[in-house]
Protein backbone atom coordinates (compact mmCIF):
# COMPACT_ATOMS: atom_id res chain seq x y z
CA UNK A 1 0.00 0.00 0.00
CA UNK A 2 1.57 3.34 -1.03
CA UNK A 3 1.96 5.77 1.83
CA UNK A 4 -0.31 8.66 0.85
CA UNK A 5 -0.54 10.08 4.37
CA UNK A 6 0.14 13.78 4.71
CA UNK A 7 0.52 13.79 8.47
CA UNK A 8 1.67 10.91 10.63
CA UNK A 9 1.69 11.01 14.40
CA UNK A 10 3.36 8.15 16.25
CA UNK A 11 3.30 7.44 19.98
CA UNK A 12 2.55 11.04 20.93
CA UNK A 13 2.43 11.73 24.68
CA UNK A 14 2.24 14.81 26.85
CA UNK A 15 2.20 15.15 30.63
CA UNK A 16 1.45 18.24 32.63
CA UNK A 17 3.05 18.90 35.98
CA UNK A 18 0.19 19.71 38.33
CA UNK A 19 2.24 19.52 41.52
CA UNK A 20 1.72 21.98 44.31
CA UNK A 21 4.46 24.61 44.76
CA UNK A 22 7.65 23.09 46.19
CA UNK A 23 7.21 24.69 49.60
CA UNK A 24 3.69 23.28 50.02
CA UNK A 25 5.04 19.89 48.88
CA UNK A 26 7.79 20.04 51.45
CA UNK A 27 5.38 20.89 54.26
CA UNK A 28 2.75 18.31 53.37
CA UNK A 29 5.28 15.64 52.43
CA UNK A 30 3.47 14.83 49.21
CA UNK A 31 5.39 14.18 46.03
CA UNK A 32 4.89 15.79 42.62
CA UNK A 33 1.90 14.88 40.50
CA UNK A 34 1.70 14.45 36.74
CA UNK A 35 -1.43 14.63 34.62
CA UNK A 36 -1.28 12.59 31.46
CA UNK A 37 -3.07 14.72 28.89
CA UNK A 38 -2.12 12.68 25.82
CA UNK A 39 -1.07 9.05 26.10
CA UNK A 40 0.65 7.23 23.25
CA UNK A 41 -1.57 8.49 20.43
CA UNK A 42 -0.87 7.42 16.83
CA UNK A 43 -2.83 8.21 13.70
CA UNK A 44 -2.30 9.46 10.18
CA UNK A 45 -4.23 11.71 7.82
CA UNK A 46 -4.39 11.17 4.07
CA UNK A 47 -3.67 14.12 1.80
CA UNK A 48 -6.73 16.21 1.03
CA UNK A 49 -8.79 14.49 3.71
CA UNK A 50 -10.28 15.50 7.04
CA UNK A 51 -9.44 13.60 10.17
CA UNK A 52 -11.62 14.41 13.14
CA UNK A 53 -10.64 13.97 16.77
CA UNK A 54 -13.66 13.82 19.04
CA UNK A 55 -13.88 13.62 22.79
CA UNK A 56 -15.13 15.40 25.86
CA UNK A 57 -13.39 18.47 27.18
CA UNK A 58 -10.21 17.39 28.89
CA UNK A 59 -9.77 14.37 26.64
CA UNK A 60 -6.57 15.83 25.21
CA UNK A 61 -7.75 16.73 21.73
CA UNK A 62 -6.70 20.37 21.87
CA UNK A 63 -3.31 19.39 23.31
CA UNK A 64 -2.76 17.10 20.31
CA UNK A 65 -3.68 19.95 17.96
CA UNK A 66 -1.31 22.33 19.71
CA UNK A 67 1.54 19.82 19.61
CA UNK A 68 1.08 19.23 15.90
CA UNK A 69 1.31 22.92 15.02
CA UNK A 70 4.23 23.38 17.41
CA UNK A 71 2.60 25.51 20.12
CA UNK A 72 3.19 22.79 22.67
CA UNK A 73 6.15 20.44 22.99
CA UNK A 74 5.43 16.70 23.11
CA UNK A 75 7.12 14.63 25.81
CA UNK A 76 7.57 11.73 23.44
CA UNK A 77 6.54 10.53 20.02
CA UNK A 78 7.19 11.76 16.51
CA UNK A 79 5.27 13.99 14.13
CA UNK A 80 5.93 13.78 10.40
CA UNK A 81 4.33 16.23 8.01
CA UNK A 82 4.56 15.98 4.24
CA UNK A 83 7.58 13.69 4.44
CA UNK A 84 9.46 16.01 6.80
CA UNK A 85 10.01 15.44 10.49
CA UNK A 86 8.24 18.17 12.42
CA UNK A 87 9.11 16.75 15.80
CA UNK A 88 11.14 13.88 17.15
CA UNK A 89 12.36 13.41 20.71
CA UNK A 90 16.05 13.64 19.79
CA UNK A 91 16.23 16.77 17.66
CA UNK A 92 13.13 18.48 19.09
CA UNK A 93 10.77 20.67 17.07
CA UNK A 94 11.89 21.73 13.61
CA UNK A 95 12.87 25.35 13.09
CA UNK A 96 12.13 25.10 9.38
CA UNK A 97 9.91 28.03 8.41
CA UNK A 98 8.93 26.40 5.11
CA UNK A 99 7.31 23.61 7.13
CA UNK A 100 5.65 26.03 9.52
CA UNK A 101 4.21 27.90 6.58
CA UNK A 102 2.38 24.74 5.48
CA UNK A 103 0.67 24.41 8.87
CA UNK A 104 -2.00 26.76 10.06
CA UNK A 105 -4.68 26.76 12.67
CA UNK A 106 -8.22 28.08 13.03
CA UNK A 107 -9.00 28.71 16.67
CA UNK A 108 -12.06 28.06 18.76
CA UNK A 109 -12.99 31.53 19.90
CA UNK A 110 -13.66 34.06 17.15
CA UNK A 111 -13.51 36.75 19.85
CA UNK A 112 -9.99 36.25 21.16
CA UNK A 113 -8.33 34.91 18.03
CA UNK A 114 -8.16 38.31 16.31
CA UNK A 115 -6.09 41.13 17.78
CA UNK A 116 -8.72 43.78 18.68
CA UNK A 117 -6.33 46.66 17.89
CA UNK A 118 -5.52 45.57 14.36
CA UNK A 119 -7.48 46.24 11.20
CA UNK A 120 -8.56 43.15 9.30
CA UNK A 121 -6.27 44.05 6.39
CA UNK A 122 -3.24 44.15 8.70
CA UNK A 123 -4.25 40.86 10.32
CA UNK A 124 -4.32 39.17 6.90
CA UNK A 125 -1.15 40.93 5.76
CA UNK A 126 0.94 39.73 8.68
CA UNK A 127 1.53 36.11 7.58
CA UNK A 128 2.21 37.26 4.02
CA UNK A 129 4.95 39.57 5.29
CA UNK A 130 6.26 37.25 8.01
CA UNK A 131 6.89 34.46 5.50
CA UNK A 132 8.02 36.90 2.82
CA UNK A 133 5.52 35.46 0.33
CA UNK A 134 4.87 38.63 -1.65
CA UNK A 135 7.25 41.56 -1.55
CA UNK A 136 5.44 44.14 -3.62
CA UNK A 137 2.94 46.37 -1.81
CA UNK A 138 0.15 46.41 -4.40
CA UNK A 139 0.42 42.66 -4.91
CA UNK A 140 0.11 42.24 -1.14
CA UNK A 141 -3.05 44.36 -1.17
CA UNK A 142 -4.45 42.29 -4.03
CA UNK A 143 -3.77 39.10 -2.12
CA UNK A 144 -5.64 40.46 0.92
CA UNK A 145 -8.64 41.28 -1.30
CA UNK A 146 -8.47 37.81 -2.79
CA UNK A 147 -8.42 36.21 0.67
CA UNK A 148 -11.42 38.24 1.81
CA UNK A 149 -13.25 37.22 -1.35
CA UNK A 150 -12.36 33.56 -0.79
CA UNK A 151 -14.04 33.52 2.61
CA UNK A 152 -17.08 35.50 1.47
CA UNK A 153 -16.20 38.94 2.80
CA UNK A 154 -15.87 42.14 0.77
CA UNK A 155 -12.89 44.35 -0.05
CA UNK A 156 -13.82 47.35 2.19
CA UNK A 157 -13.83 44.98 5.19
CA UNK A 158 -10.03 45.20 5.20
CA UNK A 159 -10.24 48.66 6.79
CA UNK A 160 -12.46 47.59 9.68
CA UNK A 161 -11.63 46.38 13.13
CA UNK A 162 -12.62 42.88 14.35
CA UNK A 163 -15.24 44.20 16.80
CA UNK A 164 -17.30 45.46 13.86
CA UNK A 165 -18.02 41.89 12.75
CA UNK A 166 -20.28 39.11 13.96
CA UNK A 167 -18.93 35.85 15.34
CA UNK A 168 -19.39 34.04 12.04
CA UNK A 169 -17.69 36.81 10.09
CA UNK A 170 -14.83 36.84 12.55
CA UNK A 171 -14.37 33.13 12.08
CA UNK A 172 -14.21 33.78 8.33
CA UNK A 173 -11.45 36.34 8.96
CA UNK A 174 -9.67 33.76 11.08
CA UNK A 175 -9.92 31.27 8.21
CA UNK A 176 -8.64 33.90 5.78
CA UNK A 177 -5.64 34.52 8.05
CA UNK A 178 -4.92 30.80 8.10
CA UNK A 179 -5.09 30.74 4.30
CA UNK A 180 -2.81 33.75 3.93
CA UNK A 181 0.38 31.70 4.19
CA UNK A 182 -0.78 29.24 1.48
CA UNK A 183 -0.93 26.29 3.88
CA UNK A 184 -1.47 22.67 2.91
CA UNK A 185 -2.70 21.60 6.29
CA UNK A 186 -5.06 23.38 8.68
CA UNK A 187 -5.87 22.38 12.22
CA UNK A 188 -9.42 23.45 13.06
CA UNK A 189 -9.78 23.53 16.85
CA UNK A 190 -13.54 23.51 17.47
CA UNK A 191 -14.01 26.25 14.87
CA UNK A 192 -17.79 26.33 15.18
CA UNK A 193 -18.44 25.58 18.84
CA UNK A 194 -18.76 29.27 19.73
CA UNK A 195 -21.19 30.02 16.88
CA UNK A 196 -24.97 29.90 16.45
CA UNK A 197 -26.27 26.75 14.81
CA UNK A 198 -27.32 28.59 11.64
CA UNK A 199 -23.90 30.18 11.29
CA UNK A 200 -22.12 26.90 12.04
CA UNK A 201 -23.38 25.36 8.82
CA UNK A 202 -22.13 28.29 6.74
CA UNK A 203 -18.66 28.11 8.26
CA UNK A 204 -18.52 24.32 7.83
CA UNK A 205 -19.58 24.63 4.19
CA UNK A 206 -16.90 27.26 3.64
CA UNK A 207 -14.26 24.93 5.12
CA UNK A 208 -15.43 22.07 2.88
CA UNK A 209 -15.42 24.25 -0.21
CA UNK A 210 -11.92 25.53 0.55
CA UNK A 211 -10.76 21.95 1.02
CA UNK A 212 -12.01 21.06 -2.47
CA UNK A 213 -10.64 24.21 -4.12
CA UNK A 214 -7.22 24.23 -2.46
CA UNK A 215 -6.67 20.49 -1.77
CA UNK A 216 -6.33 21.21 1.93
CA UNK A 217 -5.82 18.55 4.57
CA UNK A 218 -7.68 19.13 7.84
CA UNK A 219 -7.35 17.97 11.39
CA UNK A 220 -10.74 18.77 12.84
CA UNK A 221 -11.13 18.92 16.60
CA UNK A 222 -14.65 18.77 17.99
CA UNK A 223 -16.89 17.39 20.70
CA UNK A 224 -19.95 17.58 18.47
CA UNK A 225 -20.70 14.31 16.63
CA UNK A 226 -23.20 16.02 14.33
CA UNK A 227 -20.54 18.46 13.10
CA UNK A 228 -17.94 15.74 12.77
CA UNK A 229 -20.25 13.52 10.73
CA UNK A 230 -20.57 16.11 7.95
CA UNK A 231 -16.89 17.11 7.97
CA UNK A 232 -14.75 14.05 8.54
CA UNK A 233 -13.45 11.29 6.28
CA UNK A 234 -12.14 9.50 9.31
CA UNK A 235 -12.86 9.88 13.01
CA UNK A 236 -10.72 9.14 16.05
CA UNK A 237 -12.35 9.00 19.47
CA UNK A 238 -10.26 10.25 22.38
CA UNK A 239 -10.89 9.36 25.98
CA UNK A 240 -8.59 10.53 28.79
CA UNK A 241 -5.74 11.09 26.35
CA UNK A 242 -6.03 7.71 24.62
CA UNK A 243 -7.33 6.99 21.16
CA UNK A 244 -9.99 4.40 21.99
CA UNK A 245 -11.67 3.95 18.61
CA UNK A 246 -11.00 4.94 15.03
CA UNK A 247 -13.14 4.39 11.95
CA UNK A 248 -14.94 5.85 8.92
CA UNK A 249 -17.84 8.11 9.98
CA UNK A 250 -20.52 5.78 8.62
CA UNK A 251 -19.21 2.67 10.32
CA UNK A 252 -18.44 4.50 13.54
CA UNK A 253 -21.90 5.98 13.84
CA UNK A 254 -23.73 2.81 12.75
CA UNK A 255 -21.89 0.47 15.06
CA UNK A 256 -19.65 2.10 17.64
CA UNK A 257 -17.50 -0.45 19.43
CA UNK A 258 -16.94 1.66 22.50
CA UNK A 259 -19.71 2.65 24.91
CA UNK A 260 -17.88 5.98 25.21
CA UNK A 261 -18.50 6.70 21.51
CA UNK A 262 -22.16 5.87 21.98
CA UNK A 263 -22.28 8.28 24.93
CA UNK A 264 -20.69 11.07 22.88
CA UNK A 265 -23.37 10.62 20.21
CA UNK A 266 -26.17 10.63 22.74
CA UNK A 267 -24.84 13.82 24.27
CA UNK A 268 -25.37 15.70 21.01
CA UNK A 269 -29.02 16.83 21.12
CA UNK A 270 -29.56 17.27 17.39
CA UNK A 271 -27.94 13.99 16.74
CA UNK A 272 -29.90 12.08 19.36
CA UNK A 273 -33.11 13.71 18.13
CA UNK A 274 -32.29 12.80 14.54
CA UNK A 275 -31.79 9.17 15.48
CA UNK A 276 -35.06 9.01 17.37
CA UNK A 277 -37.08 10.74 14.66
Amino acid sequence: MPDDSYLTVTGLSRHFDISEPWLARLVSGRGGRLLTAVDDVSFSIAKGRTYALVGESGSGKSTIARMIVGLERPDSGTIRIDGQTAFDPVSGPTQDSSLRQKLQMVFQSPYSSLNPRWRVGDILMEPIRAFGLISEETAQQRRVQELLDQVGLSAPDADRFPHEFSGGQRQRISIARALASNPHFIVCDEPTSALDVSVQAQVLNLLKQLQRDLQLTYLFISHDMAVVRVMAHRIGVLKDGRLVEENEPGALIESPREPYTRMLMDSTPRFAGGMAG
Binding site: L71, S97, S112, S113, N115, S174
Partner: peptide, 13 residues
Amino acid sequence: EKEYVQAARLIGL
Protein backbone atom coordinates in the same frame (compact mmCIF):
# COMPACT_ATOMS: atom_id res chain seq x y z
CA GLU B 1 -3.02 33.21 26.57
CA LYS B 2 -5.36 34.64 23.97
CA GLU B 3 -5.54 32.94 20.63
CA TYR B 4 -4.36 35.90 18.57
CA VAL B 5 -0.99 35.61 20.32
CA GLN B 6 -0.86 31.91 19.46
CA ALA B 7 -1.71 32.74 15.87
CA ALA B 8 1.24 35.14 15.85
CA ARG B 9 3.50 32.41 17.28
CA LEU B 10 2.32 30.07 14.52
CA ILE B 11 3.65 32.33 11.78
CA GLY B 12 7.02 32.31 13.51
CA LEU B 13 7.16 35.85 14.92
